[in-house]
Computed example of a mutant assay.
Amino acid sequence: MSRASKDTLVSEFCSITNASPKDAKRYLDKHQRRLDVAIDAYFQESSGGRTTVASTSRLNALFDRYKDPSGDDISVDGTIQLCQDLQVDPEDVVLLAVAYELKSPRVGEWNRKGWIEGWSRLGCDSTDSMRVTLAPLRVKLGSDSTYFRKVYDHTFTFARTEGQRSLAVETALAFWALLIPTGLAGGALNHDLTDEDVDMDGEGSSGWTDEHTQWWFQFLTEKGGKGVSKDTWMMLFDFIRSIDSKFLTHDAEAAWPSTIDDFVAWARSGGKVPTTEAI
């Protein structure tokens, strides 16, 4: 690993944990420079290895602080205040992980049961402890494929308008713009090369990149349509992780949603990737 890469890891570790560069280097060296593992170990050891037991009464009191005066749910106004108290932007991707943990039914909505059970699992019963939890949760979302998939799947239901079976294209694009770059940057959407992912010159073909994400957005914007189906949303995760960067291994006869097949055809016809005939 280059010196620049090591310095980047140390910088990221320090920005997330507020640890010193010396401690950052020590934890990263101990855990083979796996950022997510090193950060988890740091937080675990900083707490003395103790598992925090959250106070249900404190969580109820916090919920009452943010809930609507006329009901027993936290809605948009309470969510905005919560974000201010947690010092997090309402559009920060980490809130999608929080929404999954607390089983939020819709954007900007939280019910008491999910609030109590979710924060209890995370060991939080104060805004301070919640704020601290956001950092390792953000790392886990970006680096852990299994966890990313759970949050990704929940986001479809979370973002969908009540009573609708699909997501509006604009809504889907907004949430993909949060999730996909996070998964690519942290490794949760890493592509595993196979023997098939090799071009004619014998050079390895990398997987999905930020450029592919922009192609996907351009395609959907040009295509229009009323919405993005659940099938398309769910299968895009598998497509991103399995396809090579030139779409050489894409099988149009496989069980991909037609939108994904159409996207590959669009990319090939537009000269963004080689056509099958040119390979």
Rank of each mutant, 00 (worst) to 15 (best):
residue 8 T to Y: 09
residue 9 L to P: 00
residue 16 I to Q: 06
residue 22 K to E: 12
residue 24 A to Y: 02
residue 36 D to C: 11
residue 39 I to V: 15
residue 41 A to K: 08
residue 42 Y to T: 02
residue 45 E to R: 06
residue 53 V to R: 10
residue 57 S to W: 06
residue 59 L to T: 04
residue 61 A to G: 04
residue 62 L to F: 10
residue 69 P to V: 12
residue 73 D to L: 14
residue 73 D to Q: 11
residue 77 D to E: 13
residue 79 T to W: 15
residue 83 C to T: 02
residue 91 E to S: 14
residue 91 E to H: 13
residue 95 L to V: 09
residue 96 L to I: 05
residue 97 A to L: 07
residue 100 Y to M: 04
residue 100 Y to I: 02
residue 103 K to C: 10
residue 106 R to I: 01
residue 107 V to R: 12
residue 112 R to C: 13
residue 112 R to E: 14
residue 138 R to M: 04
residue 142 G to R: 10
residue 143 S to F: 06
residue 146 T to E: 14
residue 146 T to V: 14
residue 146 T to A: 15
residue 150 K to D: 12
residue 152 Y to C: 06
residue 157 T to M: 09
residue 161 T to H: 11
residue 162 E to G: 05
residue 163 G to R: 10
residue 163 G to I: 07
residue 163 G to Q: 13
residue 166 S to W: 12
residue 168 A to H: 11
residue 168 A to P: 03
residue 170 E to H: 07
residue 175 F to M: 08
residue 175 F to K: 07
residue 175 F to C: 02
residue 179 L to W: 02
residue 180 I to W: 01
residue 186 G to R: 00
residue 186 G to K: 01
residue 188 A to R: 00
residue 190 N to G: 12
residue 191 H to K: 04
residue 191 H to T: 01
residue 200 M to L: 07
residue 201 D to P: 00
residue 202 G to W: 04
residue 203 E to Q: 13
residue 208 W to N: 00
residue 210 D to T: 03
residue 213 T to A: 11
residue 213 T to N: 09
residue 214 Q to Y: 04
residue 217 F to Y: 14
residue 223 K to I: 01
residue 224 G to H: 07
residue 233 W to M: 05
residue 252 A to M: 07
residue 252 A to Y: 14
residue 254 A to H: 07
residue 255 A to I: 11
residue 258 S to I: 09
residue 260 I to M: 09
residue 260 I to L: 15
residue 264 V to I: 11
residue 264 V to T: 08
residue 265 A to Q: 14
residue 265 A to G: 06
residue 266 W to P: 06
residue 270 G to L: 08
residue 277 E to D: 15
